[in-house]
Simulated assay, not measured.
Amino acid sequence: MNIVDDLKLQYKLGGIAHKLIYWNVAFFLVSLIFFYQFKNGAFNFPSWVALSSEPADFLLKPWTFLSYAFFHSGFMHLLFNMIILNFASSFFLTFFTQKQFLGLYVLSAIFAGVCFVLGYYILDLSASIVGASAAIMGILVAVTTYQPLMNVRLLLIGNVKLWHITAVILILDLMQFRLDNTGGHISHLSGAFFGFLYIKLLQNGTDMSKMVTAVIDFFTNLFTKSPKTPFKKVHKNYNNRPIEKPVSRIVTKDKLQQQIDEILDKISQSGYDSLTKEEKEFLFKVGK
């Protein structure tokens, strides 16, 4: 099995956090082809991708309140965000569901985009932003709000509290607020605030991520054809003889399914990398 097949299998078996990382990397590769200017050595994102603070742009292209969160202005920008996303998701998904993770990611990005537009309107500035930082900050601050005293072991430093890491990131954002990338820092802090707000509302019984789940389910059901009920032909029994009931051919769990379950259990306990080459190839063949 080559590396492409291996990546496909990891994408299929991975959770929503892994899929978001794949999507962000994929969009970055697309932007290198279409939006990177090799002469200037910089990205030039069009107004239908990046979120612009100009009303003439975002009012006609409302999807940019979300699309901007899947593009990045450079490799280091992407790398740092994906490291933090992987870090934050590992803690968040310990306590919350995949649907809550995706819902918070989407809502944090939209909320931060609105705050960016309003902030630049008040400051009388004009710019565009890209990056998943605001959505990721929403995830990080949410889990920090829920479990601030969780121990995190850092290389060369040792054990620290989760809130220590989050506080350092937020302080750095505040220190650079007026130095450069003001719009980016507005969105980061807005995403962080939304993560805090999400947990507080959730603790009071309001799960805002259900809005995103409802929208996704609506479009999924809209484009998914309901299975047709097969035509049933009725036969009359003129001889009044009892009709024998067909013997059920359903097997509760066959050998193939049992093997799949055993491999998935192994992944959940030890991770995907613990699989042998034969087990990976088996899952890939079954998934085709």
Rank of each mutant, 00 (worst) to 15 (best):
D265K: 10
L104M: 06
V152E: 05
K225S: 15
P230D: 00
I216C: 08
K277D: 10
I129F: 05
V130R: 07
R241K: 15
G287T: 09
A88Y: 00
G191M: 05
L140W: 00
L66K: 06
K245H: 10
K39P: 04
I84S: 01
Y146M: 02
K228V: 14
F223G: 12
F27D: 08
H72E: 12
L172A: 07
K232N: 15
Y238W: 14
G195W: 01
L85G: 03
L179K: 11
H185Y: 10
N81T: 10
I267W: 02
K280Y: 03
R249E: 14
S89F: 06
T97I: 01
F219V: 15
L170W: 03
L197W: 11
Y68H: 15
Q147T: 01
A167R: 06
M175P: 05
L202G: 09
V49H: 03
I169T: 05
F75K: 08
I216M: 12
T166W: 02
F87V: 01
D273P: 04
G195H: 06
K236Y: 09
F101E: 02
N86H: 12
Q203P: 04
F116H: 04
T224Y: 05
F58R: 00
G41F: 05
Y22S: 09
A69P: 06
I186A: 06
L222G: 07
I171L: 15
H72I: 03
N44S: 12
F116Q: 07
K236G: 06
M76T: 12
F196W: 15
Y105W: 15
K225A: 15
M76L: 14
D180C: 10
L283I: 07
V141K: 04
L107R: 07
F116N: 02
A42N: 05
I157K: 03
L118P: 01
G287M: 14
I3E: 15
S133C: 05
L264M: 13
L149M: 06
G158F: 03
V215K: 11
I129T: 07
F27W: 11
E278H: 08
L201H: 02
L59Y: 12
T94G: 13
R153F: 06
F27I: 00
L155W: 11
D57G: 02
N24S: 14
K228E: 14
A192F: 00
D180Y: 13
A88E: 04
L32E: 10
L60T: 15
D261L: 12
I157Q: 02
M175D: 05
